[in-house]
Design a protein around this nucleic acid. Sequence first.
DNA 1: GGACACATGTAACGGGTTACATGATTTC
DNA 2: GAAATCATGTAACCCGTTACATGTGTCC
Lengths: 226, 226
Amino acid sequence: MRDQLTTTSYAVLAQVAVRPWSAYELAEQRVRYFRYVWPRAESAIYREVKRLAAMGLLEGRKEYTGKRPRTIYSITADGKEELREWLGTPISPFSMEFEAMLRIFVAPLGTRDDLLGTLEQVRADAHEMLRFAGEVKQEFIDGINVTQDQAYLRALAVDFFISLLRTVEAWSQRTLAEIETWDDLMPSEEKNERGLQTIRQLPVRTPGESLKDVSKPPKSQMRPRS
Amino acid sequence: MRDQLTTTSYAVLAQVAVRPWSAYELAEQRVRYFRYVWPRAESAIYREVKRLAAMGLLEGRKEYTGKRPRTIYSITADGKEELREWLGTPISPFSMEFEAMLRIFVAPLGTRDDLLGTLEQVRADAHEMLRFAGEVKQEFIDGINVTQDQAYLRALAVDFFISLLRTVEAWSQRTLAEIETWDDLMPSEEKNERGLQTIRQLPVRTPGESLKDVSKPPKSQMRPRS
DNA sequence: GGACACATGTAACGGGTTACATGATTTC
DNA sequence: GAAATCATGTAACCCGTTACATGTGTCC
């Protein structure tokens, strides 16, 4: 058996570290816990708890409802130690899947309505996730969230989400507005000029110098600071 | 053989639609094209072009350098048609993987320095991606980007990235600042109160009413609009 | 007491990644 | 002419998903 832990392993460990859960509850509650930062199918959770239990990082206790068994998992001392060590290692970088962008790049093959529909979906998805975030916000304000005692940590997460989602929402809106000014999706001087105008105003520093000379920086830059 | 196309299939098709490439070039150039919106390992591309060629959506032409063969792929009429149809279907929703958030939730198991290190990595990753975005911006301003003639579409993408990355960067900075005010990672009334304060100010609408009554909306709401 | 939703998983398939392999080109 | 790097892939493993299966309360 494979004995290297994946991030999914740690995600499960982390959730069980909060309190014991049955595998079913774990799979279910992932929605509120990690769905949006580490999305996985429910069945992956079932396999993962078994593995972790076999490795001694989780402990499974069997219960019965009639003749139907279920397993309650809790974390072991070894499991906590694994988590602790993990916290000191480098993270895997932020990554995303954003199919809408693929479609933008080949948009001229389709219709203007196709593209508007795609952008509308992006906006709707962001809207839905914001609604969920709003629910969570309300729970904390009402003091009834399951992790209320960790509000100081969860606040960081909720802040992240809402910032990110509002960014996506804002982008989808201004992009819809831009596309609505177009008559078609064909390239044109006018569209490209507008695009360049947008790009010029984007808030990011451009490389100050050409890359050709990077291998031989001027002497003056190599002197130590006074 | 499986004959259902995945988003990865369309990503490859979309890239080949621009112009013919060898499989190696495709895998390499994904970095500049789709790496950040649809990340996949290079070997996945090799398998995908073969499948697409077998289905008649791509056409492979073999070339030789000495006795080493390579294959140049170009899109077929059927391939273009597939892309066109795809543009009319619903997109898979935006999703992300953000391991840092998992670590925040179990942060009290580790040290304050662990957590600061994690956040520092997030900031560094965002910074690096912004540097890349800045390069692309400069290319467009200089008029030398490979897709210069599609600046009107690429502008939408670059705008998206830079907005998103600046959001992540800003979040990581204010979160670092917050954590630096903490003496430890243990929960406390004071930390939680600050967290709640943050949450209350987040720019998102909370659900205006309780969910209990949703199943029986008042009659007045069911009347048709005047 | 039949239908339906909830609870609790298992099996199989395929997509994705990591590791490896080999020919060509450049460097020194 | 040996070493390092680039070019061009292949093979194998495993994670993740989709589909299915079976038991249990609940509604009417």
